[in-house]
């Protein structure tokens, strides 16, 4: 159990992801993984504002759609290449996220959740109705795969797989740096008690807006990658059910843990893949599952493993008071689950 969590677990997961293309000859499996990596990256961003900072953002899928549509529109209508469009997607989701954050974060708790739900609806309705720009329900297709660098190009599924994996790994690394910095601890302080955080001299608004903007940038990058790798986007991307999916993944893996959203996304993606009949009616299972999880298993898989480890460490510390207290494993948490 000791090696399931922490650095060994994270490295094992990463190595597994690196060799995965060698283990399967099925191209379809690679596509499923690419999709899962992209969603996991977006869920990772949602985890920053919701899991670490405690603000339930229900517009996350909408920001992912903004990233995807920025790339799609710039590539098909303005003739841009993928990488400049990718950069533009980051800027545009970051700016819209910042502006939405300034307005929405003046509200607390329920009001914030409802307000972001409305923001998500506005994004969806604009994408649906603004036919001349977004092609409405037809969606956008005809993008080229991302251009390569030197000897690498991203036409082959296997190269696309590693591209998605690279961005997911980069996203996790940056998230690890963020949540273990003073900034990350500030976010957690806000989640635990806004009053207390404010009494410590934390500027609530500035930190919440920062967390929100960072999380929307994650969504934007994920959306841009989705557009470049799946090569078809439609308004369904902005549906609130996409955000609900991500919340489910995050909760199953462990809300407020570094690897929770990734573990949850992978697990559920493969579960639904192996149970194809579930595809259409998966919400009949997911809905009650979500309810049961928040009532009986609110920490998720990674959160549960971490709690166990902390309890053991504390038990060990209380048995041998002379040795320095065992450091609780509040840092990198990974798992082989």
């Amino acid at each position: 159990m000791k090696y399931v969590i922490g650095k060994p677990g994270a490295i094992a997961l990463f190595v597994l992801a690196l060799v995965f293309p060698l283990l399967t000859s099925n191209q379809y499996h690679l596509t499923v993984m690419v999709n899962a990596f992209v969603i996991a990256l977006a869920a990772c961003g949602l985890n920053l504002i919701t899991g670490y900072t405690g603000q339930l953002n229900l517009a996350h899928g909408g920001f992912m759609a903004i990233g995807a549509y920025t790339v799609g529109i710039l590539m098909t209508k303005a003739g841009w290449g993928f990488w400049p469009a990718f950069g533009a997607a980051i800027v545009i989701t970051g700016v819209t996220g910042f502006l939405a954050g300034i307005v929405s974060l003046r509200l607390k708790e329920h009001y914030f959740a409802i307000f972001t739900l409305a923001v998500g609806f506005i994004i969806l309705l604009i994408i649906e109705k603004w036919d001349s720009l977004t092609e409405g329900h037809n969606g956008i297709f005809g993008m080229d795969a991302p251009g390569g660098f030197g000897i690498i190009d991203f036409q082959e599924p296997i190269a696309q797989y590693y591209l998605a994996l690279f961005f997911l790994a980069l996203g996790i690394f940056l998230m690890w740096r963020i949540v273990n910095s003073l900034l990350g601890r500030t976010f957690v302080a806000i989640r635990n008690s806004e009053e207390l955080a404010e009494a410590l001299g934390i500027n609530l608004m500035r930190n919440k807006v920062l967390s929100f903007t960072l999380s929307t940038i994650y969504a934007g990058v994920a959306g841009a990658l989705y557009c470049g790798l799946i090569l078809f986007i439609d308004p369904g991307l902005a549906e609130v059910t996409k955000t609900f999916d991500m919340i489910t993944f995050m909760l199953i893996g462990g809300i407020g843990t570094l690897f929770g959203p990734i573990v949850g996304t992978m697990l559920i993606t493969w579960l639904t893949q192996s149970l194809q009949f579930l595809e259409d009616f998966r919400m009949i299972v997911f809905g009650p599952l979500l309810v049961l999880l928040v009532i009986f298993f609110p920490h998720g898989i990674v959160g549960y493993l971490r709690l166990r480890q902390m309890r053991k460490a504390m038990a060990a510390a209380s048995k041998a008071p002379a040795t320095p207290a065992a450091k609780p494993a509040n840092k990198e948490a990974g798992t082989n689950a």
């Binding site: 059910t241 609900f244 919400m283 997911f286 009650p288």
Partner: peptide
Amino acid sequence: IAAIGILLFLEA
């Protein structure tokens, strides 16, 4: 989140 779970279940 639980309310969202009920919503998803009833709709599906």
